[in-house]
């Protein structure tokens, strides 16, 4: 019986001690999050197919949307280039550079330079100072315009267009 009383007393004492803790006791919880670096370019299509056309035809313009994202505040530009003229590898003929051009558009506040595709990358879009950081993404639409020359030989004409995203020094 004595033991039971003693045990009860100990329990009551501990309970009393616990209840006597100050009401404003606080504990800190460290919170942290890591945000990934974003420096990306996304094209909505992997190829542009102008379909089958007649010599002398003007192709329906094709749009390629390049979305640029950056969460670092840096000036950047979008450059375009081709690996070669649109070329028919069988007939060994190519479509002159002047017949295959691009024009830029979209919501950007920067500077578009429209024109032909060159072998060396050429700046198509230079971002405005307000676009140094475009974390939500800036959609830049390039419209590709093709005119088939009247004397073009029959066959398949292909090349590769590269979209380059680069920071400026």
């Amino acid at each position: 019986m004595k033991k039971l009383l003693l045990a009860s007393l100990v329990v009551v004492l501990f309970a009393g001690m616990a209840m006597a803790q100050p009401a404003d006791l606080t504990a800190d919880v460290n919170v942290q999050v890591t945000v990934n670096g974003v420096w990306s370019i996304t094209l909505d299509v992997a190829a542009v197919d102008f379909g089958t056309l007649e010599p002398g035809d003007i192709a329906t313009p094709a749009n390629v949307v390049a979305t640029v994202r950056s969460n670092q505040k840096i000036p950047w530009g979008l450059q375009l280039n081709k690996d070669r003229d649109l070329t028919n590898d069988v007939a060994l003929e190519s479509i002159p550079s002047a017949n295959f051009t691009y024009t830029g558009g979209g919501p950007g506040a920067g500077l578009w330079t429209n024109g032909e595709f060159f072998l060396a990358p050429t700046t198509a879009y230079l971002c405005a100072a307000t676009e140094y950081k475009v974390a939500a993404g800036l959609a830049l639409t390039t419209t590709l315009n093709l005119t088939i020359p009247a004397p073009a030989a029959a066959g398949l004409y292909t090349n590769v267009i590269t979209y380059t995203l680069t920071a400026t020094p």
Partner: peptide, 22 residues
């Protein structure tokens, strides 16, 4: 620099993207 995807032989341009670290 991504290598252009080998797809169906269509007339036109295959695309690739290139991103640089300066």
């Amino acid at each position: 620099h991504t290598k252009p995807q080998e797809g169906a032989k269509n007339s036109g341009s295959r695309l690739s993207v290139r991103v640089g670290t300066l």
